[in-house]
Design a binder for these strands. Structure first.
Length: 189
DNA sequence: TTTAGGATGAACT
DNA sequence: GTTCATCCTAAAA
């Protein structure tokens, strides 16, 4: 039997729904933050909306590496977003983590996002969750099987809704966004 | 409640 | 010079 991590070697559109329900653990100076993944999007090198579409560059090179690594990119001059690299080594694809349900270390998350009052708004967006978990370019290329940023597979299979992706302007027809049905921590915009 | 625009910088045309 | 896998605030409806 192959282990759970081998599932990340599939195409991004197949991996993305699988990651719903998994936990993301962040260790910072002896403290622990945990979020449960409730929303994802797939990006693939055959897809015009993907950073990997036009081939490998210094920015997106992690996407072309082995699966299970974190691809963290900087955008809009101020935000980071985090992906789980998937597909075989050499193939540029990844799953964007778009929202987490806060599960542990809420106090620390709030500390990282000072003006946020409602728990709902802590991690319900790809850049928001990176702020809450202090995920920056330092973690680009980090192996998610290990701390200080670790992915924890879960056995339960949640009810999943599939829709088109958010915030892109090309290849908008692909229904490569997945989220947990009725979960209030899914992104709004 | 919904919409419009500003922040802010790296990558791309 | 334009775009960008975003977020937040303020103004309008």
């Amino acid at each position: 039997m192959t282990d759970t991590w081998d599932l990340l070697n599939q195409r991004a559109e197949l991996v993305a729904p699988e990651l719903i329900g998994w936990q993301l653990v962040r260790h910072i100076k002896g403290q622990r933050i945990i979020g449960r993944i409730v929303e994802t999007e797939a990006y693939d090198q055959i897809d015009a909306a993907s950073h990997s579409f036009k081939g490998q560059t210094p920015r997106n090179s992690v996407m072309f590496g082995p699966s299970g690594m974190a691809y963290v990119y900087f955008t809009y001059g101020m935000h980071y977003c985090m992906n789980v690299v998937c597909g075989p080594n050499g193939y540029g694809s990844a799953v964007l983590i778009r929202a987490l349900e806060p599960a542990h270390g809420l106090q620390l998350m709030r500390h990282h996002r000072p003006h946020i009052t409602s728990t709902i708004n802590l991690c319900n967006g790809p850049a928001k969750l990176c702020q809450a978990l202090l995920i920056t370019k330092q973690l680009n290329g980090h192996d998610l099987k290990s701390l200080p940023l670790q992915l924890l597979p879960q056995k339960v299979t949640p009810d999943i809704i599939q829709t088109t992706r958010i915030g892109i302007s090309r290849d908008t027809a692909r229904r490569w966004r997945f989220y947990e049905k009725d979960n209030p921590f899914v992104s709004q915009l």
